[in-house]
């Protein structure tokens, strides 16, 4: 078992052979058609999909497009559909797939840049502008001399829990409601609304939030299919959060 000494070159490695079935399509290239290409790679200890993709690009096909920045599950760039599950490539070990066949698809529901790379940034920005996802303080005049109101540690912790979202787009891709209804805000939108709703520094009332998400593109359009809850790579409590907002928004009717 001297797997420690495996080198980067596939010939010298002792691991099993992995077959990567990768979606390929470059919308920028005229005449290009969507297809699946197969790449073979020797598995090395601790190999993630992210490491494998980099090796494929380095050694086999420099034209392969995919996104990554941090390789540690923090930047949210490398989300893709891995064997039918949308998740982060950098946090998915190849050893998880006993068959050795790994199919990679770009996240559905986003503008395709090429191959496995999608434009989540554009979607997130539009969402933030549409839902006004920033703090709306109680008072508009800013007095730099006034002392900031303290926040209870419990509330700070609750906010921090929701702040862990890395905007990877998995919840949007995993949501069949979103795929059927393009204008649906998805779990990420509701998570961020819930974050400001919980924030004591935010001056918006339940009534104000109703105007933003109290519709069928928002919380009342959610059909509780739970793709968001089951796939979020950061394990955010989407189900509870959306239910909380639903109760909160429904309560404004009474």
């Amino acid at each position: 078992m001297n797997q420690q000494t495996t080198s980067m070159s596939p010939e010298n490695a002792s691991g099993r052979l992995l077959n990567f079935h990768i979606f390929r399509y470059d919308p920028q290239q005229k005449g290009d058609k969507p297809r699946t290409e197969v790449y073979q790679l020797r598995e090395t200890p601790g190999m993630t999909i992210f490491i494998a993709l980099n090796q494929i690009r380095q050694q086999q096909d420099p034209s392969l497009q995919f996104d990554f920045v941090c390789r540690a599950g923090i930047c949210g760039s490398c989300a893709m559909v891995i064997n039918g599950l949308p998740t982060l490539a950098c946090r998915t070990l190849t050893s998880k797939f006993k068959q050795g066949d790994i199919t990679l698809m770009p996240l559905p529901g986003f503008e395709l840049i090429g191959d496995l790379s999608v434009d989540t940034g554009k979607f997130m920005r539009e969402l933030a502008e549409r839902l006004k996802l920033w703090l709306h303080p109680h008072h508009h005049e800013i007095d730099v001399h006034s002392i900031e109101a303290p926040m209870a540690p419990e509330q700070a912790a609750a906010l921090y829990e929701l702040e862990r979202c890395v905007e990877c787009g998995v919840c949007v891709s995993a949501c069949a409601t979103k795929q059927m209804r393009e204008t649906f805000v998805g779990a990420v939108g509701m998570m961020k609304i819930a974050r400001f709703e919980l924030d004591s520094r935010d001056g918006r009332t339940a009534e104000d939030f109703y105007h933003v998400i109290g519709n069928q593109d928002g919380v009342f359009g959610c059909m509780t299919l739970l793709g968001c809850q089951d796939n979020c790579p950061k394990d955010l409590p989407h189900m509870q959060q959306i239910a909380y907002l639903r109760r909160k928004m429904a309560a404004t009717i009474l």
Binding site: V81, L85, P86, A176, G227, D230
Partner: peptide, 14 residues
């Protein structure tokens, strides 16, 4: 859209 979604991401609760 639903059929395509079920094909790409066959999620149980969906």
């Amino acid at each position: 859209a639903l059929n395509k979604q079920m094909h790409v991401i066959p999620h149980e609760d969906t």
